[in-house]
């Protein structure tokens, strides 16, 4: 993590608010730290990788860089995972890697104040508490604040080679 990012975190924390990119998976709304997002692009030309977990859709060419594409809808066991014109890939920068995550829709960039962020209760096995910053409360909407770095570098995502290998 660069110093600049760390610094911005501090600044944001002092102000008590933080910016998030909000996206939806099916009917659920999630949000990730905007500072981790590199770009947003359409879903196309993904080359399948054999013998990989189902949620790893394959690799794509991002201006000459080979980037793995993860479908969070499959990972979170959502009922549907369709690919259409609306399907979007959020390219994130985590742990010196570039990874694309497939989501149904990107809706917003939101600033959440400290009061709007609530601790997450223990729920579902698909998304253990470790990978969640908390919940965001926006009027009627509930956002799940995902710790995308922790999630994507976790062993079960099988994105990063384990140290033993």
């Amino acid at each position: 993590m660069s110093n600049a990012t760390a610094l911005e975190h501090t600044v944001a924390a002092e102000a008590g608010s933080q910016e998030f990119l909000v996206f939806s998976l099916g009917d659920e709304e999630y949000a990730i730290d905007i500072l981790k997002v590199q770009e947003i692009r359409g879903y196309d030309n993904v080359t399948r990788i054999a013998n990989a977990p189902e949620f790893i859709k394959g690799v794509a060419n991002l201006r000459g860089v080979i980037v793995p594409i993860v479908d969070l809808r499959i990972k979170f066991r959502l009922a549907k995972a369709d690919y259409d014109d609306q399907t979007v890939v959020i390219v994130v920068n985590i742990a010196d890697r570039v990874v694309g995550i497939v989501v149904d829709r990107v809706s917003d960039v939101m600033t959440l104040t400290a009061e709007q962020r609530k601790p997450a209760p223990e729920f579902g096995v698909n998304l253990p508490l470790d990978y969640i910053h908390g919940l965001g409360n926006l009027d009627e909407r509930m956002l799940v604040l995902v710790d995308i770095e922790k999630l994507l570098t976790s062993e079960e995502m099988a994105l990063v080679e384990e140290a033993s290998e």
Binding site: I49, G58, V65, V98
Partner: peptide, 22 residues
Amino acid sequence: LETNYRKVPGVSAATILGDGRV
């Protein structure tokens, strides 16, 4: 492939084809 992903069994590396696909 290992820059952003990991070693894939049976595959040594990747390339980009003329149509931009991997």
